[in-house]
Amino acid sequence: MRGLKKLFTTGLIGSARRSRGVQRFMLITGLVLTAAFLLLAALAPILAPYGFAQLQDSHGYFGSQQPPSSAHLLGTTVGGMDVLSRVLWGSQTALLVIVFAVAMSIFAGVILGLLSGYFGGWLDRILVVVADAVFAFPSLLLAIALSIVISGGRSGLFSGILATASSITVVYIPQYFRVVRAETLRTKNEAFVESAKVLGASHTRIMFRHIFRNATRTLPLIMTLNASEAILTLAGLGFLGFGIDPTMGAEWGYDLNRSVADVSAGIWWTSVFPGVAIVLVVLGITLVGESLNDLADPRLRNRRAANLDELEVAQGGDSA
């Protein structure tokens, strides 16, 4: 609990307080966009006027490719679904995929990275080669292959989310693995780890009490950057038709795919809104990640300029 509280206060709030100028603007913009995304995802069932797969209400069918009107604020898609509702519900799908993908890849990546970095030897060599091989793969291709293997191409909401998240997980494990392994290698040669060894502490104790938390300090930064990449991969999968079935869940990439033909016909509302949603969420999360990264690094952090006059006032203006 103390760790969590500390992470929160020194991480986000501390960063916001310390930030200045452009960095502050970036961080605040990112935080606002991300907060809006989380809020919309949570409140989608209340905010969305219709269901994500709803085609008709008491007044009959919505109709295909209807322009924005009072009944459908953002118009309807080629499949006859309400664009606003699809965008809102889509945020929920995106959030679920992010949470699953990031949680799974962090868990696997951190454990493997710790073991690999701490013990070294043949285990380390094998894991590094595997991670490099995964790195060498085009990630979207790998995700497609995996989503076909896991779900046979297309599926319901939960299995679809799981399939997409797992394929993203596999692609991202090497990133966490690499970072945690490098940090572990660095930390394990620090005097305090040697000190624990001299005490006769067991490997497990050294790894989890002394190295683990020191090696995972940069993870929040990678997490935010990966979360935005996860959305892009999800959208890519959806766009290519390997995502979640439209009747099982709303997904922005799928909607974009279906609206390709509309663009040339002058029907802008089917593509613009899911597209903007993707851009804003990715932008928001990336901004948070980038500015956290800058603020965590004392060399990149902007500070208020030093002021000698202020010092003189503090000292009672004795130096003339």
């Binding site: 952090r301 500070r303 208020r304 030093a306 002021n307 000698l308």
Partner: peptide, 10 residues
């Protein structure tokens, strides 16, 4: 003087 997180340091 240097600008630091804790303000100006002489």
């Amino acid at each position: 003087a240097f600008a630091t997180d804790a303000g100006t340091v002489n």
